[in-house]
Amino acid sequence: MAIDTEKNSYTVVFAVIMVVVVGAILAGLASGLKPMVKANERYEKQQNILYAMGVNNNQGTSDVEFIPTEIVESEFDKYIKKQYVIQGGEVSENDQAYLIDIKKESTKAKDPNYERRLPLFIGEKDGEEVYIVPVRGKGLWDAIWGFVAMDKGMTVKGVYFDHKGETPGLGANIKERFFMDDFTGEELLDGNEFKGIKVAKGNNDPKNEIKDDYEVDAIAGSTITGDGVTAMLKKDIQMYKSYFETLN
């Protein structure tokens, strides 16, 4: 081989070829897999929403068990009766509401002229109506989000939380049953005042038997993630308060 690999021109040509080849491989792979990734993301969202309202395979396990991906679309149509979009006080029906990107909406909402679109799902399980809203906030390392199912008096029926990159074993436990189950039965309203639910330290009620204290027991070692959950619930659910007032 007579190529002088030390020459500048060779280095530049090599770098260019390398970048083009790698770029082509990754771009091809990404666009080839995109439909599958998108479908997976859609199913996941449906599973999460159904999980929050109690449609899941949790019975008899201590793990988070979603309903299987294969049936999630038909189950979603079965349990979710209505999907609404609330925009500036106007409530309109929209059967694609679950696809609204909460992150984009909250970025757009920084513009004072933009009225944020708020998705809301009404599900029906065992003859009871539940109202499910998405929430999104910040944890320690990255985004955290979830869905909260409530009755019309804003008492929590179930929650689902997820995170992008919280610490395994610590903050990442917000998506474990022992944490999420504590929220069930907690109230968000004190009379007419919106209190939210605080992820509180101090271990004063570890089995979470007191349901009207607006607090759940925090996870040791994950203060900032817990505070993130508190803030997320307070900020995002509050936006729906005026809608819930029209229900009663």
């Binding site: 690999t5 030390e6 280095t11 090599f14």
Partner: peptide
């Protein structure tokens, strides 16, 4: 054998 040593870390 073809990686230029100057940019090998980046490669």
């Amino acid at each position: 054998n073809v990686i230029p040593s100057k940019i090998r870390i980046i490669v």
